[in-house]
Design a protein around this nucleic acid. Structure first.
Lengths: 356, 356
DNA sequence: CGTTAGCACTCTCACCCATCGAGTGCTAAC
DNA sequence: GTTAGCACTCGATGGGTGAGAGTGCTAACG
């Protein structure tokens, strides 16, 4: 079990590459260790099984393949998959028919980022038959777009806060008994807040609020509500990941390597760890590329048997989210990468369209 | 495998009850078939194992226990659990310390029903070490409380719709090019809609909209937006269950009867079936009582190995939701019922408080 | 008549062992 | 450098066996 990713020791010659590729693709479909005979039978390699055996042995000392036991076939190591992903695999673009179908699905659903990222996860899950993962596009610092207040009763108002980035937040704000609250008052407060706070970040909003008086009842209530708004927005800014939506974990459960459920349970629990997810999203959002994390390359021990294919989407600097796929290390990377690429591209378009 | 619940054939005498109880409680903790010797050892029954055997045999012909094979101990049948739940089990009220802790947790979270039902599911999962399930409190017919419009760009407005029952809906409404849309116009439209539609149901709102003219640009846009609002509200009314939130399915996964993951996967898939969930929620919301569905009493085949303990909460006639627990049939019904009772009671209080 | 001791019987589970076969690694020939 | 041949390894499979748990029956007991 090589924990550390070792750089491929010199480029492999073409034949070795072809054989590594064959082993991986065979193993991905059968989930069984691959023997030399099976390779010459099913892939036209033009050499005998003995030759293949020699090469398999070389690939093994290079750390790209391993051996469950002496008399079993070969299985790719994490490094083997890594080499495959970087130098061999062809990313399979999604068939045009499916592209169309998916665009159609996104068209059907509400025109709102809220729904999109969920749909993205579901779509990815369906297409790759693995688990789909998606986070909403979250800005590094959000801007207030709109404030609305609804009277719940005399001492409580329901606050609805819309952010420029599309998120909607709700909160109930308790108010002083002294202020007789009715909907008319709240309307005035909301108007005031909308005039003063629109397009501001939490920091700027706090400054503006400081300028409000304490005597005028409208301003007093506005101040109270405004403070709550600032708190909500800064909490939102502070959270590295607002929410992670995943779908199709059942698909992964069906894989033979997770037949005895315990491993998968650990994966589930690791996925509930906010800190880890935040770190992950962080590392992906930086560049615009697709990131692949294979087996032990994932830091948490529980994730050592699964791989992630993740891509950022959104507008750099204003709102970034992540979509991707989680599957067993034995996954079809070419297909996964192609699918994730398409979906993240689509999400880019949609977000762009929403902002333009 | 008795599919049909057979009514206990005449009341069991006290000793038989005690033994049935012992079998069930032992089986619930050990997950192993229970033998006559184990019963006399661990429960002070005051009789010999031979006598216990006789009674076990009687309970078996009554259909309350069964036999995996000749030389194994007894295991409760669904009917056995049913009898236990109805005539023997004592519902364990939640310890006062935990009650306090939970109330505290609900106090911490945002004062909004949106968060509560999720927290309820999480809490139930934690307390019972099974899966917690909760749906938001949903009205049979919703009332419009507040409409808000935000300009996205010149041809698109973002609509935020608050319902009296607490739900918030968002949608993006495309508008005619003819109407020059800016935030000022939208504010007027929103004011108009708020004046006319507040506290109306979908049906009434549609009538009011019909009265709007086509000439005034404000009214024209209002009509357009209003139609969308009506559609959203009636869709919301039509959906039997808006959303089902579940947490802690991992807990159930840990149970030995689900060691080989396949059964549980089926449960997962059954839970994704909206129609079934709707039916379930429907059947529970009627009465104010706690409902227990044991094993094969659940209609879908996939649910034959699990039990549900569900309770409605909310205000009858205005907004009803469901909270509960899903676990293996071999679950601690007394504890589950007590916990669900407490949480549903708490939810009742909270909703009441919100409306009062 | 209900209760109990005793006992034969049944069935699963764990273990052992032999067999089988897939697949390797090595060697020697091409 | 490639290949045929072959001994070897090791997991998987399946039958056989003994131990143990638990039952169900019978006969004796109070």
């Amino acid at each position: 079990m090589a924990r550390r990713v070792r750089p491929p020791l010199g480029p492999l010659d073409l034949r070795s590459q072809a054989i590594l590729r064959a082993v991986i693709e065979e193993y991905v479909t059968t989930a069984q260790p691959v023997g030399s005979q099976a390779l010459v039978d099913r892939y036209g390699l033009g050499v005998s099984s003995a030759t293949v055996r020699n090469i398999l042995a070389e690939l093994e000392v290079a750390g790209l393949l391993s051996h469950p036991h002496t008399s079993a076939g070969r299985v790719p190591t994490d490094s083997g998959y890594r080499y495959y992903v970087e130098s061999i695999a062809e990313t399979l673009p999604l068939p045009a028919v499916e592209q169309l179908m998916i665009r159609h699905q996104f068209g059907q659903v509400e025109f709102a980022s809220e729904h999109w990222f969920r749909l993205a996860a579901t779509t990815l899950a369906g297409l790759t038959r693995s688990a789909g993962i998606a986070t909403p596009a979250k800005p590094s610092s959000a801007h207030i777009r709109r404030v609305d207040l609804v009277a719940v009763n005399e001492r409580m108002a329901s606050l609805i806060l819309v952010l420029r980035e599309g998120a909607i937040k709700q909160a109930t704000v308790p108010l002083d008994e002294a202020d007789a609250i009715d909907q008319a008052t709240l309307n005035k407060v909301a108007t005031l807040l909308n005039e003063r706070l629109t397009e501001l970040t939490a920091g700027h909003a706090a400054q503006v609020l400081a300028g409000l008086g304490e005597n005028d009842p409208i301003e007093r209530v506005a101040r109270r509500v405004g403070e709550r708004i600032v708190r909500i927005v800064s909490d939102y800014d502070a959270a590295a990941v607002e929410e992670v939506f995943s779908d199709g974990l059942l698909n992964v459960m069906a894989a033979p390597e997770f037949a005895q459920s315990d491993k998968l349970r650990q994966v589930f629990t690791a996925l509930e760890n906010r800190a880890y997810l935040g770190e992950l999203v962080e590392s992906v959002s930086g560049s615009g590329r697709i990131h692949v994390f294979i087996g032990a390359e994932n830091h948490p021990l529980e994730m050592h048997d699964v791989s992630l294919v993740l891509a950022p989407y959104g507008r750099p600097g204003s709102a970034i989210g992540v979509v991707g796929v989680l599957g067993p290390t034995r996954m079809s990377y070419g297909q996964a990468i192609g699918t994730v690429r398409f979906v993240s591209g689509l999400m880019n378009e949609l977000v762009e369209h929403l902002y333009a």
